[in-house]
Design a protein around this nucleic acid. Structure first.
Lengths: 214, 214, 214, 214
DNA sequence: AATGAATGAGCTTTCATTCAT
DNA sequence: GATGAATGAAAGCTCATTCAT
């Protein structure tokens, strides 16, 4: 019996934490770390300012946990959906599509991680977040690289380009499109994200596969 | 004689303005619009807080002038160095290289413009800056497009891809590399910017030139 | 039970607001709008500067509410105690005495309204306060005028003087005494307010009643 | 020869001082002591801020000298134009008219002195100004009193009222009209200053002369 | 003497955090 | 646990005064 009560309390607790994180994520993306006030977050989470301090030790703590959550989502996506079927080309295309899906479905998380890197917080602070992001990225790039190595071994990809570099360039090429979309440039140029991504992949993969004549 | 004195005074005045702008640019990039305080800027410029208000009407004014300066630098580079010699491929490569030079030589300006777009300031504010940035970008993309049209006409580039889109993708591919460098990822992966840029151009141009077999 | 608590909280809230207004009134009168600082007011109200902003939106807000309060007091006095008994002469004397009572009992409010008019605030600001004060004054003068009309009709007052003007002059004659007291001149001349007021009324009413021989 | 130069320099000096005082008087009346900035005063006087400190030791000094000037003007008027001809009644009327002339011709000086008294500056400050103003007022009231004593002796004025008090009341009655005009109430009521003053004098003198029947 | 840029204390206001209830 | 009023440090900005020129 008591167990049921304890469980309900715990559920409510998690619910409240999630509400705060949702509010914070939204506001951090919207107004930045300094622009979003604790009062804003409390109001958005439909709580009092004081209540927030029951669940979090302060603004920095919330910020870190929002980033943490963003990590967990990306990691989850990366881990869960390792693509192992099809030609290397198809598999890379699938991985890329997964990244784009992360961007469209979890835009706020994507923006959080991007913003964090671009200096939302004071430099020097949350060095460990930066470290984790670095590891995560390395992991992601390595996944692409493995497929690429296979592709080169199978002759599908040109051996002119180092597989590690090619992976990085692939990522950069896609990242560029997503960030420009985030900045609103696709809208400015009346371009469709889906189409631009497709074209970009066609170009990048075409460029990697082609015998370079330089 | 007086003329000399007046000139010296004017020079010192410009020097001071530049010192303030330098300090502001550095701190805006480092800590963001809200994170950089007027006191910080004054200290960095080795002035008292009050002195800044002799030259600028307030924080917003400084911010706008820093952005303005960044604009002027980019516009200057774009206007000055229209590349008209060589094959379309060479010309695009040259334009790209110019963009990379802007990034390496004027990193802070590049970051300012990027940050501005990414929401350093409160959303909605300085709408006109955003508008100018949009125009500027359109201009830059159009320059690439012109060369591309020529390249398609001359048969050097595949006609499979719309020239406007291809230009955009080219830009995105390069921008991605520069932003990842800005974020420190190239360093993380022990990659050399120059080399990655070269590879990226090879890939992108290769992809665009290739008859796509899809 | 909860009702009791809520009531106590509300009481305390009102208490605090009153403490702030008391402090502000005192300091505005003492040092003027610009001379009285928020720190001063907070200190006088035994609160931190921040606490004030829980109850008021800023200095202007406090200022307006202090004036508002002064208005309410005067209006209350005017409305509540319309004097309708006795001869016109007695009634005017009673109204005058009421005005003097307002001055002695609510000196700070009297000073606030006077100061406000004399340019305590930046000119042009709070135009609506000035408008209300004008209305209020018109109201008050009209009350005197009505009695005066009656007095003329009844033959008690001389018909040589226009009733509207006479009312105004009566007011001015009394106001002069009060302001000179406010300035400390009665004390300087070792005069007693009560006595001077009595004499002034005797003179003014005497002058108004007398057949003028000019 | 040198004398001529020295004289010109001295003249220019006086000219500059007068320009500063004119500017200050205007601005103190317009915006109050704190509202008027040294920069405002310098601009109005067509000088640099620094130049002001050659002639005055600071803002307080200017303020005091503006008051001083106001004093000199009033004292000059009082001393110069002792009215000794006509009946006591005519003489008092003439003195009153002189005071009104001071008000209309030197409104700013009149306002300065009034404002000063009403607490433009921090209380306690410039105690000696207050002292001088007190003396001055006593002097002025004494002049009226002398005439009044004469009037009582000659049977023109009622002996019911103490001459000192009557003088004070006369002053207060007139002062009230002038201050209400300063506040803009005459304009509000569409009254003409000249007419109201005349009426006020008629009333006051009538009241003083009449045998009081109380 | 005259200039006006520079200083820095002090203004109003905001906001992360605490704490009595 | 939850509330929201209270705190006080720190923000952007102003301005009397100084001082190198």
């Amino acid at each position: 019996m008591e167990n049921v009560v304890a469980q309900r309390i715990e559920t409510e607790r998690q619910e409240r934490i999630e509400r705060i994180l949702d509010a914070a994520r939204k506001l951090f993306v919207e107004k930045g770390y300094l622009g979003a006030t604790m009062r804003d977050i409390a109001l958005e989470a439909e709580l009092s300012t004081g209540a927030i301090y029951v669940y979090f030790s302060g603004k920095d703590d919330i910020y870190e946990r929002v980033c943490e959550e963003a990590f967990m989502v990306v990691i989850g996506l990366i881990k869960k959906e390792a693509i192992t079927e099809g030609t290397p080309r198809d598999r890379i295309r699938a991985i890329a599509r997964q990244y784009v899906t992360f961007y469209t479905d979890y835009t706020e998380y994507f923006e959080m991680l991007t913003f964090h890197d671009l200096g939302f917080t004071k430099r020097g602070q949350s060095e460990h977040l930066r470290e984790r992001l670095k590891d995560l990225t390395a992991q992601a790039v390595r996944i692409i690289e493995e497929v690429m190595v296979e592709g080169i071994a199978g002759g599908e990809f040109s051996s002119d380009i180092d597989s590690a570099q090619a992976s990085f360039n692939l990522w950069a090429g896609l990242e560029g499109v997503l960030i420009l979309d985030m900045m609103g440039y696709l809208k400015n140029f009346n371009l469709d994200l889906e189409k631009v991504v497709q074209t970009q992949l066609k170009i990048l993969l075409g460029g990697i596969m082609a015998k370079t004549r330089e």
